[in-house]
Amino acid sequence: MGAVTPLRREAAAEVEELELELLLEALFQRYGYDFRSHERALLRRKLRGVMRTRGLRTLSSLQDRALHDPAAASATLRALHVPPATLFDDTDEARQLRQLAGGCLRGAALPRIWLADCAGAEQAWTLAVILAEEGLLEHTEIHATVASDEQLEEALDAAIPLDRMAAAQAAYARAGGAGQLASHFQVDGKRAVLAPALRSHITWAQYNLVTDASFNEFNLIACRRALPDFGPLLRQRVLHLFHESLAPFGILGLDRPLQQSDPLWGSYAPAAPAPWHRRIA
């Protein structure tokens, strides 16, 4: 067999690009989830992982499976959405939340927090534990939004196997926790769930960052895991959405620091630890 020529490699790349565009359009038309403005390199990496798992060689074959096989569609969409977090898995984020939350919540009559494109129940539970320990949860509303109905069902029914609680306690301690994480949970058989007194402050909803409008004003917005997947135009659209949704002197937490050249930068003061930004206007 002869070597692959540069021309053939270029043709193969063009075909794969066409396949990718057709797959993204199919997912949008069939299921309503719009990944067409996401970063192409990240999409390819995630989709190739699904293809390897399912023994598929081309994106066209994955498109065929996703359109006709509910299990393949679910696996494809799950791979493209924000992956689930575990309790206190982001040590820096948890420490910064302990440091920053009081400054933007204590002065508000009814503090609200938005976890946009939340990475599942355990990210929201982490925040609830931090706020409870800082004495801030009692009057605070946490709005956790996810991109799909499937993610919403998983968040509402979430629980942690008891054999994971030791690892969760260690992560909690690394993130500045000084007590016993288990005191914030109740045991249900071989699983642990967040105590009702904390869970009652979390409101879950399905929400699409690509298409939906601002739905409230928030003192703190965190979107720490989704933005790297967005292309430049979509990222700009989402930043404007957050700008419209953030209260004066509220704090915005992003995956990456806003750049000085960003037109929204003038509305934020980089006084908070990066990548957290405080709105001053």
Rank of each mutant, 00 (worst) to 15 (best):
237 R>M: 06
123 Q>E: 15
144 A>F: 02
187 V>D: 03
56 L>H: 00
84 P>Q: 00
70 P>V: 03
194 L>A: 02
65 R>D: 10
240 H>T: 08
204 W>Q: 00
68 H>V: 11
123 Q>L: 04
67 L>Q: 01
251 I>V: 14
196 P>H: 08
156 L>E: 15
259 Q>V: 13
32 G>S: 02
9 R>I: 09
115 L>N: 10
69 D>I: 04
129 V>M: 05
210 V>F: 01
19 E>A: 14
145 T>R: 11
110 L>T: 12
232 P>A: 01
200 S>Y: 04
131 L>K: 06
230 F>C: 07
238 V>A: 03
174 R>A: 09
103 G>L: 00
24 L>C: 01
160 I>E: 02
28 F>I: 01
138 E>P: 07
276 W>T: 04
131 L>I: 07
203 T>P: 05
249 F>G: 10
264 L>H: 12
237 R>F: 02
188 D>I: 14
160 I>R: 03
141 E>H: 12
81 H>G: 13
77 L>F: 03
144 A>S: 06
198 L>D: 06
137 L>R: 06
156 L>M: 15
220 L>T: 03
220 L>F: 04
256 R>G: 04
155 A>C: 15
92 D>A: 10
244 E>V: 04
263 P>Y: 00
69 D>R: 10
161 P>W: 07
175 A>N: 00
1 M>K: 02
64 D>Q: 13
214 S>H: 06
157 D>E: 15
115 L>Q: 12
229 D>M: 15
9 R>V: 08
4 V>K: 12
58 T>C: 03
60 S>A: 14
30 R>N: 10
251 I>E: 02
154 E>P: 01
13 A>F: 06
90 D>E: 11
124 A>C: 04
180 Q>W: 11
107 G>K: 05
221 I>Q: 04
268 Y>S: 08
140 T>V: 07
200 S>A: 15
112 R>E: 13
154 E>D: 14
221 I>C: 06
52 R>L: 11
13 A>H: 10
30 R>M: 13
17 E>D: 15
277 H>Y: 11
119 A>H: 00
180 Q>A: 13
222 A>Q: 01
227 L>P: 09
186 Q>G: 09
23 L>D: 07
49 G>F: 08
191 R>N: 11
161 P>V: 03
55 G>T: 01
80 L>E: 09
169 Q>T: 04
143 H>T: 13
205 A>Q: 10
137 L>F: 01
78 R>S: 13
46 K>V: 04
31 Y>A: 14
204 W>A: 08
192 A>W: 00
140 T>D: 05
74 S>M: 12
174 R>T: 05
277 H>L: 07
124 A>E: 06
130 I>A: 05
25 E>K: 13
230 F>M: 13
217 E>F: 11
71 A>Y: 09
163 D>E: 11
245 S>P: 12
232 P>G: 01
47 L>K: 07
124 A>L: 00
178 A>E: 15
122 E>H: 09
103 G>C: 02
215 F>I: 13
87 L>M: 09
37 S>G: 12
219 N>A: 11
274 A>P: 13
170 A>L: 12
67 L>N: 03
110 L>P: 00
152 L>A: 07
263 P>T: 05
29 Q>N: 10
32 G>Q: 05
154 E>Q: 13
27 L>C: 02
114 W>K: 08
